[in-house]
Each structure stands twice: as C-alpha cells, then as structure tokens.
Amino acid sequence: MEPINKVVSVITPLDRKNVDTDQIISKEFLKRIERTGFGQYLFYHWRVDADGNEVKDFVLNDERFKDSKILVAHENFGCGSSREHAPWSILDYGFNVVIAPSFADIFYNNCMKNGLLPIKLNVSEVEELLANGLQHASAVEVNLEEQTVIGLDGKRYSFTIDPYYKEMLLNGWDEIALTIQYEAHIASYEELQRA
C-alpha cells in the first residue's frame, strides 16, 4: 500500500450518521474479482437516481468538492458488512482520509490495511468541520506524523491513533511480510497445541 502522511485538501462534508457499507458500495458491484475500479460505484445510489440521472444535491456531485481527498461524516461510519470493497471504493474515488467521531470496527481495520487514514475527532469538532464545509468549501491539512488536522483558518484539532497502525500507514508496510518474521512463534504455538 501507499505510505500516507500529509494531505491538504478541501473537505467533502457528508452530513449523515451511521453511513453503512451497503451505501458506500452496493452489493451489485461486489462481483468483481479485482481490487481496483470500485471508485465509480462509491455511494452509487445516493449519487445517481433510479433513471440514471445525477442527484443534484448530493455532496459528491457538488463541483466545489470535485478534487477533495478528505471525507467527513457523523458517528459510526462504515457500519455493516466486512466488505473491503468499501475502503477500496473510497480510495479509488480519490479520498485518502475519512474523518468521523467514530467508526465501525471492521471498517476501521480495513482502512488501515489499505492506506486509507481514518481519523476520529470529537463529535463537536466534526460538527464544526461539517458546518464550515457545508457553508463554504473549506480546506484542511491532515498530518499523520503530528496527529493533527489544521484548518486553513488556523484552527487545530489533534487525534489519537494506535502507534502500530501509525507506523504501518506512514511506511506503507505490507503487514504479511511483517508477520512472517514471527514464523518461529507461530510454529511453536502450533507445536504446543499438538502436544
């Protein structure tokens, strides 16, 4: 996966809570056997109506956010299924960061394995970002090394992240390659089980 540290971009304010994985990527797009090409289907049924027309007032169709790399939403983002197609589609669409007050566990884990940075801020901080973002396209700078999100107006938020995942994201490490270094531990665990 690609290393990630600094991202500067206008935010895309998605004013919803409990955004579930069925909305992020609908099941009809899960049949592919590749990891790529899912971006075009991100939030498909919110972006496009039943007749195939763009839904005008959906944020992803708003010109101002076209090149955004940072998605912001309310609590419990990514709840529902384990489909990794969800972070794949978010990344493939062009986002590198998702900011929310909380994330569903499996989705959060899946982000870490793909170099998509999930940032947890307080409810009030996220509400502030959303309110600003909805009013006028507002940009922020995300810095993983420093664990900060800084608004271009100077407003500074800090976030916590597990140091293990932080290292992995900063370096873009392949977790399997890391684990293989523990082969002796795995083998002796198996030995003990057999005994």
Partner: peptide, 23 residues
Amino acid sequence: SFGIGTSEVEHVLSTQTLWQAKP
C-alpha cells in the same frame, strides 16, 4: 468469531494469525 476484510483474509491464509488489539 468475527468478520474480517479481504486483506485480513489474505493475512490469515498466509500466516494463520491476525494482529488484534484486545477488545
């Protein structure tokens, strides 16, 4: 017993283990 993403599926296939923070 818990659900995992595809990267973790690959990790388990390859190593029969997962890195997991104690819930």
